[in-house]
């Protein structure tokens, strides 16, 4: 007899694991909805800013900001890597890192050295193992990330760019396609792609207070911050979506496992009863 009691405890323990994964799935579902809302809420700001910047770059072409400048020869690149703080979300972070590592290999083959700024625990842990210069990091942003917490990390990168230590900044994050699909994405952040299209309509200019340069400086750094913030929020939505899928799979697997074990248990129980009966019968026959 294959230990009916042992099988029973095994089933009980899988059942409690299933309860946990089920709960995590439901929590992730509700958090995902909230994260999606945040994703939508942050859009008008970035759109509005892009409008103003587009207009500014057309209205005052004499002042060329370094963030808008033509691409210079690339010797060093900076990556802002957005990841989740916690695991148990399927291959979300691993997929992103794999894509990133492939690009870094390409860069290294061409003699380009990368520097990193990490957002989230997983990226930090990864680059600690992978080796690479982590210039700045921030972790534990929680479910409601605030732009305030990101400013420092972004500023490190922008400073390095302005001082010519790095020539291009990329941001790596997961793009939220839909609840089932998350696309690891690496996008160029700085220099900003110049807004396309020539001047349209009559050209007019703003009155600037205090002056155009300061205003544009301010706008651009804020715009970049808002882009990073959006990436963080989007990655957050991806994390919850991926966790939901992973936990659903785990719950289903636990269900399957319980069914199988239940069958084994029933067989063991039946075998035990049969044996007992045959023992009694043979005992009675012996008397």
């Amino acid at each position: 007899m294959a230990g009916a009691k042992e099988i029973r405890t095994k089933i009980a323990s899988i059942k409690s694991t299933q309860k946990i994964t089920k709960a995590m799935e439901m929590v992730a579902t509700s958090k995902m909805r909230k994260a999606q809302e945040r994703m939508r809420a942050s859009r008008p700001y970035a759109e509005k800013m892009l409008q103003v910047i587009t207009h500014l770059s057309k209205a005052s072409p004499e002042y060329n900001h370094s963030f808008l400048a033509k691409e210079r020869e690339v010797k060093r690149v900076g990556y802002i890597v957005v990841s989740s703080d916690r695991g148990l979300c399927g291959g979300l972070n691993a997929n992103l890192f794999r894509k990133l590592v492939a690009q870094i290999r390409d860069d290294r083959a061409r003699g380009i050295e990368p520097g990193f700024c990490t957002i989230g625990n997983k990226a930090l842990g990864f680059f600690r193992r992978f080796g690479g210069r982590v210039e700045a990091q921030v972790t534990h942003l929680g479910d409601k990330p605030h732009i305030e917490d990101l400013i420092g990390t972004i500023k490190v990168m922008l400073n390095a760019y302005e001082q010519g230590e790095i020539d291009v900044i990329y941001i790596a994050y997961n793009e939220f396609v839909n609840t089932m699909t998350q696309q690891p994405t690496i996008r160029q952040l700085v220099p900003l792609k110049p807004p396309e299209g020539g001047p349209t309509g009559p050209i007019w200019d703003y009155i600037y207070e205090p002056d155009a340069r300061l205003v544009l400086d301010n706008l651009l750094s804020r715009y970049i911050e808002s882009l990073v913030y959006q990436a963080v929020v989007e990655n957050g939505a991806c994390e919850q979506a991926a966790r939901r899928v992973a936990m659903k799979a785990a719950t289903d697997n636990a269900g399957g496992l319980i069914d199988e074990l239940q069958l084994v248990y029933n067989k063991a129980r039946q075998a035990a009863i049969t044996q007992e009966i045959s023992e009694i019968v043979s005992g009675a026959a012996a008397v």
């Binding site: 700024c117 990490t118 930090l124 600690r128 982590v134 210039e135 700045a136 990091q137 921030v138 972790t139 400013i151 420092g152 990390t153 500023k155 490190v156 400073n159």
Partner: peptide
């Protein structure tokens, strides 16, 4: 902002140191 940048840097150094 500058202070925040420095903090972010130091956090990275501390985290890597270990």
């Amino acid at each position: 902002d500058e202070a925040k940048a420095l903090e972010a840097k130091r956090r990275a150094e501390d985290a890597l140191a270990g």
